[in-house]
């Protein structure tokens, strides 16, 4: 839609101020929630509890949300992150069951997840289907494929006696007393932040997400950007599958989808942290942290377990409301 050329969106000082408020709504919410639970929830502040929040509520979701952040940055969405998690998990478990060395199984797991990304890449970058539809299709197809692979959806257990110790390291190991899942998460967060914010590839992903045709007209390859992005998304998601399986020593078909909606939620909560409302890794991380703390805090404050979900939902809602209400508005109209 071409527009009348007059710009009607000068950004006044008051607007900038309120934009800043919106931007820090997320941090404020995090601090508030933390302080609240520290004062009302017994045991919340204990080191053991905080560690368990990070390991159980935050780490895996953070990785899944980072994956989602790439897709959303590229102007898309990946509804099949759960599928990539599942495929990684399945490949990992199968290879270990088949007696392969754990290291090889890990590589195989990553490859299994990346296959989902490759499929998406062909659909999105090759054929040109919109990411929402493409990954929705992948999700549905992936679900049936898993049913076929598992004889109708039966979980694949690793018999406790036959599990090599190395298998559990990813989920249960520690380095200098820090649980491995947390370390892996931190590494992925840091690396992803750098890739998205500081590399030419990251910049072109963001630009493609904003206005794909400009990227094309700037001599950058849009299909390549999309293909790499969606494969990367699945590859990152595959790590979730590996850690998850290593922790619980079982593969349950289509269980990865549990992460989907929270990953989307965290990514979009995170957008309120950016000046221009863009998806960004630090914001996503804060979003995941917020979700994790609320879930844990509600649990500890003795509220009915089921209120957790209500509380989480309300919180997402209010952060978004504040963040969106203040957002700087550059219309394309």
């Amino acid at each position: 839609m071409a527009a009348s050329a007059q710009s009607t969106h000068a950004v006044g000082p008051s607007r900038k101020l309120s934009g800043t408020i919106g931007r820090y709504a997320l941090v404020a919410a995090l601090v508030l929630v933390f302080a609240l639970f520290a004062s009302i929830a017994p045991g919340f502040l204990s080191g053991a509890n905080l560690l368990s929040v990070l390991v159980n509520n935050v780490a895996l979701l953070a990785i899944a949300a980072v994956a989602m952040t790439f897709a959303v940055s590229a102007g898309g969405i990946d509804l099949s992150v759960g599928t990539a998690i599942d495929f990684a998990s399945f490949a990992f478990v199968s290879l270990v069951l088949a007696g392969q060395p754990v290291l090889l199984a890990i590589v195989g797991g990553l490859a299994g997840g990346a296959m989902v990304g490759l499929f998406n890449a062909i659909l999105i970058a090759g054929i040109g289907i919109s990411p929402f539809l493409a990954t929705l299709g992948t999700l549905f197809v992936g679900r049936s494929v898993q049913q076929l692979l598992t004889n109708g959806g039966n979980p694949v257990y690793l018999p406790p006696n036959s599990v090599p110790d190395a298998f559990r390291v990813l989920g249960h190991g520690t380095i200098a007393d820090i649980p491995l899942p947390i370390l892996v998460t931190l590494v992925i967060l840091a690396a992803s932040w750098i890739v998205l914010a500081r590399t030419a590839f990251g910049r072109s992903v963001i630009a493609a997400g904003m206005q794909a045709s400009v990227v094309r007209y700037s001599g950058l390859s849009l299909p390549r950007i999309n293909a790499v992005t969606y494969i990367l998304v699945s590859l990152i998601a595959a790590v979730v599958g590996l850690i998850l399986t290593s922790t619980v020593t079982v593969y349950i078909p289509s269980s990865g989808n549990a992460f989907l909606l929270n990953a989307i939620g965290a990514t979009f909560i995170g957008t309120t942290f950016d000046r221009h409302g863009r998806p960004n890794i630090p914001g996503t991380a804060l979003g995941v942290l917020l979700l994790g703390i609320v879930a844990n805090g509600l649990l500890l404050s003795g509220l009915n377990f089921y209120w957790q979900q209500v509380g989480t939902g309300l919180l997402i809602f209010s952060v978004l409301a504040i963040g969106f209400g203040q957002r700087e508005n550059v219309t394309r109209a």
């Binding site: 071409a2 030419a200 910049r203 904003m210 400009v214 094309r216 221009h276 550059v330 394309r332």
Partner: peptide
């Protein structure tokens, strides 16, 4: 211009260097 020439929600900086990112980056920008 508004569709293909410039990305309206990217900054002047990001638009200006979009076609020449390689020039500014060695691994990192």
């Amino acid at each position: 211009r508004r569709r293909d020439g410039v990305a309206l929600s990217l900054s002047v900086l990001e638009n200006t260097t979009l076609a020449s990112l390689k020039r500014f980056s060695r691994g990192l920008i």
